[in-house]
Simulated scan of single mutants.
Amino acid sequence: MSEQLQNVFQEYDIKFTTARASILEVLKVANSPLSYEQIKEKMSVTMDKATFYRNIAKFEELGMVHKFESDDRKWYFELSSTTHAHFICEQCHKITCMNVDIGNVEGEVTSIVLKGTCKACHS
């Protein structure tokens, strides 16, 4: 386990488990939000679905992870480093993180999802 990951467990004052560390390692290197199935494929340990969602719920409660539901009716997860928008292609369902300034919004924004057709599908 990396020192950076050890610091995360200390910072959020949560108990270290191999399941939690494995989930966070996958999310840490992800370039875009990942579904349960995508995370499960990349994890270094095996765990059942209930254990995964119990840990994800704990991460959400602590503000470590954000989730949103996509058109394919799956939940997608990412580390909550910043609040940003996501673009979902309605044809290929690819999810792209977008750098959108939401600084002038009153209140707490938890999810911004834009939908349309990506450049690859539009061609």
Rank of each mutant, 00 (worst) to 15 (best):
S2F: 09
S2T: 13
E3I: 06
E3H: 14
E3N: 13
E3W: 08
Q4R: 13
L5N: 00
L5E: 03
L5R: 04
Q6T: 12
Q6I: 12
N7P: 01
N7Q: 15
F9R: 02
Q10S: 10
D13F: 06
I14D: 00
I14F: 14
K15R: 12
K15I: 07
F16L: 06
T17Q: 04
T17D: 04
T18M: 13
R20G: 02
R20H: 07
A21M: 09
A21C: 09
S22K: 02
S22N: 06
I23L: 03
L24R: 02
L24C: 04
L27A: 04
L27Y: 00
K28G: 06
S32A: 14
L34H: 01
Y36G: 01
Y36P: 00
E37W: 03
I39C: 09
K40W: 01
E41D: 15
E41T: 12
S44H: 11
S44A: 14
V45N: 13
T46V: 12
T46I: 12
M47A: 08
D48K: 10
D48R: 07
D48T: 06
A50F: 13
T51K: 04
T51Y: 02
F52N: 01
F52H: 03
Y53N: 08
Y53I: 02
Y53H: 14
R54H: 15
R54C: 06
N55H: 15
I56K: 02
K58H: 09
K58R: 14
F59A: 03
F59K: 00
E61M: 11
L62R: 09
L62F: 10
L62M: 11
L62C: 04
G63K: 10
V65D: 02
H66N: 14
H66T: 09
K67Q: 14
K67E: 15
F68I: 06
F68Q: 04
D72A: 11
D72H: 07
W75R: 07
F77C: 03
E78A: 08
L79I: 08
S80E: 10
S80Y: 07
S80Q: 10
S81F: 10
T82E: 15
H84Q: 14
H84S: 06
A85V: 04
A85D: 02
H86P: 01
H86L: 07
F87T: 04
I88Q: 10
C89D: 08
E90G: 08
E90K: 13
Q91V: 15
C92P: 07
I95F: 00
I95K: 01
T96W: 00
M98F: 05
M98D: 11
N99L: 09
N99C: 06
V100P: 01
V100T: 11
D101V: 10
D101F: 05
D101C: 09
D101P: 04
G103H: 07
G103Y: 03
G103F: 03
E106Y: 07
E106T: 15
G107I: 09
G107M: 08
E108M: 09
E108D: 11
E108L: 13
E108A: 15
V109S: 08
T110F: 12
T110C: 06
S111E: 13
I112K: 01
I112D: 00
V113A: 11
K115R: 15
K115E: 10
G116T: 04
G116S: 09
G116K: 05
T117G: 03
K119M: 12
A120Y: 12
A120L: 14
A120C: 12
H122Q: 13
H122C: 08
H122P: 00
S123F: 11
S123K: 15
